[in-house]
Simulated scan of single mutants.
Amino acid sequence: MYKNIVIPVILDHPEKNKAAFEAARALADEGAHFTLLHVLEDIPVYVSEYVPNDFVVEARKTLRSKLDELSKTLPNCHAAITEGRPGTQILKWAEQNNSDCIVIASHRPNISDILLGSVAHYVVRHAKCAVHVIR
Rank of each mutant, 00 (worst) to 15 (best):
R108E: 14
L11D: 06
S48L: 12
E69N: 11
L74V: 06
A120S: 14
C101F: 02
P44H: 04
N4H: 15
E30V: 10
L115V: 14
N53D: 15
T35V: 14
S71K: 09
K66A: 15
T82L: 03
N4D: 13
I81R: 02
E83N: 12
S65I: 03
H78Y: 11
G117C: 01
R108G: 08
A105C: 00
V6G: 08
K128D: 11
H121C: 04
V103R: 06
H126E: 10
L40I: 12
A79T: 06
E41G: 07
A32C: 06
R64C: 06
E95H: 06
W93F: 15
P75V: 06
L63T: 10
W93S: 02
E95P: 00
P109A: 03
P75T: 09
K18F: 07
M1F: 08
A130W: 01
P75Q: 11
L74W: 06
Y46S: 11
H121K: 11
Y2W: 08
I81E: 11
L67A: 09
L74N: 06
C101M: 13
A127W: 03
D54T: 09
R64P: 00
A24V: 02
T73H: 12
A80D: 13
R25Q: 13
E69T: 12
L37P: 01
H107F: 02
I134S: 04
A19G: 03
N4K: 15
S65Q: 14
A19H: 05
H107M: 09
L40Y: 02
D68R: 09
P44R: 07
V51R: 10
Y50C: 02
T35H: 02
V124I: 10
D29W: 00
L37G: 02
P44N: 04
V124C: 10
A59N: 08
K128N: 14
E95A: 12
A127I: 06
N97Y: 03
E95C: 00
I134W: 10
D12A: 10
H38F: 07
I81M: 13
K92Q: 13
K128R: 15
R108S: 12
N17M: 14
D113N: 14
K92I: 01
V51P: 06
C77I: 04
L36R: 05
E83M: 13
E22T: 11
K92L: 11
I81V: 11
H121Q: 15
D100L: 00
I7D: 09
A32H: 03
S106C: 05
R64A: 11
A79H: 07
R125S: 09
S48H: 03
L36K: 04
N110C: 06
A94G: 03
A80Y: 08
P8H: 03
I10P: 00
S71P: 08
P14L: 08
E83A: 15
G87L: 03
K92M: 07
R108N: 12
P44T: 04
R135F: 09
L27I: 02
A94Y: 03
L36W: 08
V51F: 02
I134R: 07
C129Y: 09
L115P: 00
